[in-house]
């Protein structure tokens, strides 16, 4: 499980290995990057990371939902959602690895 999930700790470790900073500072920098992205999105600004993908905030209107258990109609209030669009570079990278693995098996 831990081997199949990458967390902040793994990202900090990668930064630590790549640049000669302390582990502590590497972790702080990972956090700063995530914070800056979040803050921009909360301001309503899209975030575009070339060769990775883009994040954008989309406004959803009100619609009628249904409580699946009781069948009762409940309004779903207007809200903002975050959408991520992977770049072609990232999609190709993932697909290439997937196809190679399928061919090998």
């Amino acid at each position: 499980m831990s081997n199949d999930t990458v967390t902040r700790a793994d990202l900090s470790e990668a930064v630590y290995q790549e640049v000669g900073l302390s582990r502590n500072e590497s972790a702080t920098l990972v956090e700063s990057v995530l914070d800056e992205i979040s803050d921009a999105l909360v301001r309503g600004e899209p975030v575009k990371i070339s060769s990775f993908g883009s994040f954008a905030v989309r406004q959803k209107g009100q619609r009628v939902g249904r409580n699946p258990k009781t069948g009762e109609e409940v309004p779903i209030l207007p809200r903002k959602v975050l959408v991520f669009r992977a770049s072609h570079v990232l999609k190709n990278r993932i697909n290439k690895a997937f196809k190679a693995a399928r061919q090998a098996s």
């Binding site: 990202l11 990668a14 990775f52 993932i94």
Partner: peptide, 21 residues
């Protein structure tokens, strides 16, 4: 640093892993 972070996420996904932040 910034490139390493996105590279690492991309590599994990290419390996079929999940990245949970």
């Amino acid at each position: 640093i910034v490139s390493t972070i996105f590279d690492e996420i991309g590599e994990a996904l290419a390996d079929g892993k999940r990245v949970e932040l």
